[in-house]
Each structure stands twice: as structure tokens, then as C-alpha cells.
């Protein structure tokens, strides 16, 4: 059974038809990538999944429960790290614990246990502006993880990093998700990134977004052929060359 199910989601924002009957599922421990052109409504989809905005139609089901228009189950991470400049890294990543009612000292202790795995050991008392882009994104990821360790929603999390750092982060994330069997919903417009991370890819159309194709990637999948397939789907749909 799917751990996360977005069923038949439709949404218009300010009269603009953004999502058109989108159904997406993710099984526990699966990495699902939502791939689509920029501005196609991927972020709106994640906002609906996080419960920040209600869909016009459709439902959000997580672990068999209806989480439509309800926050507090999953948090998400964006291209922007959204770390608070006023707090040290340790205090930033322990925010979700504090918000859940854990006292500050205990939250810090709990967060501290993860600093090494996220490559932040020794930087606990630094402020965000003192850290590199990659480290800030790892801190943001740790914050997301500490909110809900079983499901991570990631909205183009590495898009602002340079190619080399982004590549390192992708590989690190893949190992991490595998080790902790996290369910990941990963939004991107980067086909290479999608191919590296996904167990399954949903290819979305330009706005109003609908699912053009669902591609399962097992170990035998030939990534070059899958890439060709995705490109041809996107080309035929938009009439433009996708890059």
C-alpha cells in the first residue's frame, strides 16, 4: 500500500489552472521524483502535500489518513535553505523539535546526534551566513529530517548549488535515504538528477500540469534510454526542445 497518495488533485491559483487531475503515489522507502518544466506547478503540488494550501479537488492521504489541508505531518525543503540568520546551525536544525514542545536543551542534544552524519560536526555554533551553500542545504535537510524522519519533501533542494556540490549532495542523499529507508518526494526539472535519485519518475506537462508518464526505474533500466524517452515525451507535449 502506498504510504503517500495524492489522488486526482486539481488546483487553480488566482484563476490560473495549475494542476489538472494529478495522481501521485509513493510507497514507504521509495524515492519518487516529480519531473517537469519550470513553473508547471510542482511547488504548488508540494504545498498541497504539506497541507499549506487546500486543493480544489482531490485528497492527500498519508499512512491511510486524510491530511488534505492539514499541516504538521510532513515538512519540506526548498531551493532556498530558509535557515534563520539569527540562530546558530544547531539551534536552526532543532527548531522542529522545539516547535513540537521538546525543551531547548533536549532538542539540542537530540539534534547534535545527527550533526556528524550530515557533515556539520564542528559547525554547531556557526551562524548560517558563515557556512557554504552545500552545508546550508545539508542543515536545511537535517531540519526537515528532524521534523518527520520517514518522509522528506524536497523541492529542487540542490538547484542553487554549483554542479559539483550538487552532484555530491545527490549521491549523499541517495545513500542516506537508502540507509534510513526514508520515503522521498523529490521535485526537479533536472533529468540527470531525476535519473540518479528516483525509483520512480512522474513526468509532468507544462501548466496546467498533468501526469504525462509514470516511469519505474529498476536496476536493469538503461538510463540513456529512459532519458531519451523522457525527452521525447516532453518534446512532443510542448512542441519545444526541453533543456
Amino acid at each position: 500500500m502506498a504510504q503517500i497518495r495524492l489522488s486526482s488533485i486539481s488546483k487553480s491559483i488566482d484563476g490560473l489552472h495549475t494542476l489538472n487531475n494529478v495522481t501521485i503515489e509513493a510507497a514507504a522507502g521509495e524515492s519518487v521524483v516529480i519531473l517537469g518544466p519550470s513553473g508547471c506547478g510542482k511547488s504548488t503540488l508540494l504545498n498541497i502535500l504539506a497541507g499549506l494550501i487546500p486543493p480544489d479537488e482531490g485528497q492527500v492521504i498519508i499512512d491511510g489518513q486524510d491530511w488534505t489541508n492539514r499541516t504538521g505531518r510532513v515538512s519540506y525543503m526548498q531551493q532556498k535553505d530558509l535557515l534563520l540568520p539569527s540562530r546558530t546551525i544547531l539551534d536552526n536544525v532543532s527548531i522542529p523539535l522545539v516547535l513540537k514542545g521538546t525543551n531547548t536543551k533536549k532538542s539540542r542534544t537530540l539534534a547534535q546526534q545527527h550533526m556528524e552524519e550530515f557533515g556539520l560536526l564542528g559547525f554547531e555554533n556557526y551562524y548560517p551566513r558563515q557556512l557554504s551553500g552545500g552545508m546550508k542545504q545539508r542543515a536545511a535537510l537535517l531540519r526537515t529530517y528532524l521534523f518527520a524522519s520517514d518522509i522528506l519533501l524536497l523541492d529542487e533542494p540542490f538547484a542553487s548549488l554549483d554542479a559539483i556540490t550538487a552532484r555530491k549532495m545527490q549521491i549523499w542523499l541517495k545513500d542516506f535515504a537508502h540507509k534510513h529507508s526514508c520515503t522521498i518526494i523529490f521535485v526537479t526539472h533536472d533529468i540527470e538528477e531525476a535519473l540518479l535519485l528516483a525509483n520512480r519518475i512522474y513526468v509532468l506537462s507544462a501548466r496546467p500540469a498533468r501526469v504525462l508518464k509514470e516511469i519505474a526505474l529498476d536496476d536493469s533500466a538503461n538510463s540513456t534510454m529512459v532519458k531519451e524517452e523522457i525527452l521525447s515525451i516532453l518534446d512532443s507535449e510542448t512542441g519545444d526542445t526541453y533543456n
Binding site: G51, L52, T71, S75, L99
Partner: peptide
């Protein structure tokens, strides 16, 4: 304040005061 920052806090179930 960045509205995305507010949204992030909302998604984590933060109260208005927090």
C-alpha cells in the same frame, strides 16, 4: 520576512506566536 519562511514554519505546525 520571507513568506516562504512563514510557510515553512506553518508546515511544521508552528503557532502564530512562535
Amino acid at each position: 520576512v520571507d513568506p516562504d519562511q512563514i510557510n515553512l514554519f506553518r508546515s511544521m505546525g508552528a503557532t502564530k506566536w512562535a
